[in-house]
């Protein structure tokens, strides 16, 4: 059994990724959505850090994300360097309904840019957009975009118009402008509905200097056997499919 598992790793590229951000912004939920395509309401706070892996296929490559989902609580802050030290990618998450969480995100970005691997790919993710959307019944992404554009225009007249955009504390424009300025990938996401989650990891995958990683780790990884049988078909997310909303589509 073990052999089968290890055999599938042969051609995959390992990408170390760390999630950072204030407590309760939804870091673990973002990862859970990506790794298991699940969502749990009222998730318990992460303790220390959790380690997860997920395979992705990007074109003809298989990426194996090794994800460090860190705890957001203040007392764990000092441990963060241990996790981002060798990371090739970081997802810094904030909560669009909480302005202070963006400020925290900015300090994380600063810290990463100062102390992490200089080539690190950083993505900024504004989570919980489901809270400012009218209703989950319309999953068409067009209406979602329209919603975001509307920002502080008249509140959505939908069923929950009252709680809709009013909850938003971080305008999309503002965060996006900051992301551009700081050279980050930017997404607004909902771990609850799954919106935008796979996109984060896809875009990161595209930006990661894969060849470089391969070159540097070539010594370490075992020389691949017959490459025809990549695990991507069975074990990974197919990133090309991210448009498909099919629940089963992107897991295993």
């Amino acid at each position: 059994m073990a052999d089968a598992a290890s055999g599938s790793q042969d051609r995959s590229v390992q990408v170390k990724l760390v999630l950072l951000g204030e407590a309760a912004v939804g870091k673990s939920s973002v990862v859970l959505r990506f790794v298991s395509n699940e969502f749990q309401a009222n998730k318990e706070p992460t303790i220390g850090a959790a380690f997860l892996t997920q395979k992705c296929r990007l074109e003809d490559r298989v990426l194996r994300y090794e994800i460090w989902d860190t705890a957001g609580q203040e007392r764990f802050h000092s441990l963060a360097p241990m996790y981002y030290r060798n990371a090739q990618a970081a997802v810094v998450v904030y909560d669009i309904t909480k302005a202070s969480s963006l400020e925290k995100a900015k300090t994380w970005v600063k810290e990463l840019q100062r102390q992490a691997n200089p080539n690190i790919v950083i993505a900024l993710a504004g989570n919980k957009i489901d809270l400012v959307q009218p209703s989950s019944t319309s999953s068409s992404s067009d209406s979602v975009d329209a919603e975001d554009e509307a920002d502080d225009a008249t509140a959505t007249p939908g069923e929950n118009g009252e709680t809709g955009e009013n909850l938003r504390q971080v305008p999309r424009d503002e965060a996006e402008a900051y992301a551009q300025e700081a050279g980050l990938l930017f997404f607004e996401t909902s771990a609850k509905t799954g919106e935008g989650i796979v996109e984060i990891f896809t875009e990161i995958a595209k930006k990661i200097p894969i060849e470089q990683i391969l070159a540097s780790s070539r010594g370490g990884t075992r020389p691949g056997a017959a490459g025809a049988r990549t695990a991507g078909q069975e074990g990974g997310v197919n990133l090309e499919q991210n448009a498909a909303k099919d629940k089963e589509g992107c897991n295993c």
Partner: peptide, 19 residues
């Protein structure tokens, strides 16, 4: 007691690492 906290024992993570 600590490692049986729901966020660890119920986690879908393959491992946790905690101080």
């Amino acid at each position: 007691n600590t490692i049986h906290a729901p966020s660890i024992v119920n986690s879908s993570a393959s491992a946790s690492w905690l101080p």
